[in-house]
């Protein structure tokens, strides 16, 4: 997973918002809101970690089953991809 350049992640209370900046801003009408888990995953994507690394971190940090973490990450990736936040 590779995050596209030009997005800002910002915390508001318990939640987060991701907005486009730079050249992407013109084409990026939506903004994405994330909860804590979403932001946790997103930060790993920012660091260009592999899907396995994200799943491992999630399993450890949130003490969830690997299968659940895998399906969560896959669903989250699909959402980010649909929103144009990441390149596959």
């Amino acid at each position: 997973m590779k995050r596209k350049e030009g997005f800002l992640l910002r915390q508001f209370g318990d939640d987060y918002i991701v907005v486009a900046v730079g050249d992407d801003a013109e084409n990026f009408n939506k903004l994405i809101t994330l909860n804590g888990v979403g932001a946790f995953i997103y930060n790993f994507i920012v660091e260009e970690k592999s899907r396995d690394e994200v799943v491992a971190a999630l399993t450890e940090h949130y003490e969830v089953e690997r299968s659940l973490a895998e399906s969560d990450v896959a669903a989250f990736e699909a959402r980010l991809s649909a929103a144009g936040l990441i390149d596959d």
Partner: peptide, 27 residues
């Protein structure tokens, strides 16, 4: 109303700067 909804709605109704510093200031 929850804070994140307020911010998202306001962002949708204002001019969003493309410059990262200005966007950061707006946030």
């Amino acid at each position: 109303i929850d804070t994140i909804s307020v911010v998202a709605k306001l962002m949708n109704q204002t001019v969003r700067p493309s410059d990262p510093w200005l966007m950061s200031n707006l946030l």
